[in-house]
């Protein structure tokens, strides 16, 4: 019995270290006082409400949402065919292509952001928004390819052949047979991509300009000026948002096997 207790204690301590800080954020945001502290000085929801009043948060939230949704969709549009080709056909140099596509995960984000700023935005006169959009797409692409590949690997190839024998064109076979069967993989890729993009900081660091900032960058800036609990409240809200998405994804897709 002692062993069970020790094991529970280890798990509990680890989880406390990993998750405990969120609870602290949640409560810190509930403070009625005007400076950050824990335990909070009195309880109130005012900081949670105040978050919605900050104009820059609203703007950056909209931008982050746009980048996360459109960037991920765009990554899926070019990523799904790539994953399909890599999995189904023996293309020469498939390993190289995989490596190229995976590169944005391996190379530190801050370097990507800086390189894009210096060699695309400045000389080619891209707008910051476009650059951000392209950067976020490139960043999400490897996840899209990886997750969709994984679910393609688990799909029998003969069902496509059966569809073709029954009169489908190759394209119809893909859209009518393959796509419905990898739907949860694509959905999982979307969620993973969305969360990655939405939480992304280093890539956006250099690419943010005046008035065009993603939410996390805006929070970083806000933190430097003020020491009030609104950032805690916003962090808690974002954490709840992510948790909600992941919880639903886990219940419906068994999300954790895709991570």
């Amino acid at each position: 019995m002692g062993k069970t207790w020790a094991s529970r204690l280890i798990i509990f301590t680890t989880l406390l270290f990993l998750i405990g800080p969120f609870f602290i954020i949640i409560f810190a945001g509930l403070s009625a006082g005007s400076s950050l502290s824990f335990p909070p000085q009195g309880l109130s929801l005012k900081w949670y409400l105040a978050v919605f009043e900050v104009e820059s948060f609203r703007q950056s939230f909209t931008l982050s949402m746009f980048l996360a949704v459109c960037g991920t969709l765009c990554a899926l549009i070019i990523g799904v065919p790539a994953a399909y080709a890599i999995c189904r056909y023996k293309i020469p140099g498939a390993e190289t292509i995989k490596l190229i596509v995976a590169a944005p995960i391996i190379v530190p984000g801050i370097i990507v952001g800086l390189a894009l700023l210096r060699y695309l935005v400045v000389p080619l006169n891209f707008t910051v928004t476009l650059a951000l959009f392209l950067a976020h797409t490139a960043l999400v692409l490897p996840y899209a390819v990886r997750v969709v590949s994984a679910s393609l690997e688990n799909l029998r190839t003969d069902i496509e052949e059966a569809a073709v024998l029954l009169g489908c064109t190759r394209l119809q076979a893909f859209s009518k047979v393959v796509l419905p069967n990898i739907r949860s993989g694509i959905l999982a890729a979307f969620i993973l991509g969305f969360v990655t993009s939405f939480n992304q900081v280093p890539v956006s660091l250099f690419l943010s300009g005046p008035g065009v900032r993603t939410l996390p960058i805006d929070m970083l800036d806000y933190m430097e000026i003020t020491y009030d609990p609104s950032v805690a409240a916003l962090s808690a809200l974002l954490a709840f948002l992510s948790m909600g998405i992941v919880f639903i994804a886990e219940k419906t897709l068994g999300f954790s096997r895709y991570v």
């Binding site: 680890t14 989880l15 990993l18 998750i19 800080p21 969120f22 602290i24 954020i25 810190a28 950050l36 502290s37 824990f38 969360v195 939405f198 939480n199 900081v201 996390p216 929070m219 970083l220 933190m223 950032v231 805690a232 962090s235 808690a236 974002l238 954490a239 992510s242 948790m243 998405i245 992941v246 954790s256 991570v259």
Partner: peptide, 19 residues
């Protein structure tokens, strides 16, 4: 619960340590 933190904004995760 172990993978949950990975889905949460690193800004939020790091901010907790200030508190």
């Amino acid at each position: 619960l172990v993978i949950l933190p990975l889905m949460i904004s690193p800004v939020a995760r790091t901010y907790a340590w200030i508190v």
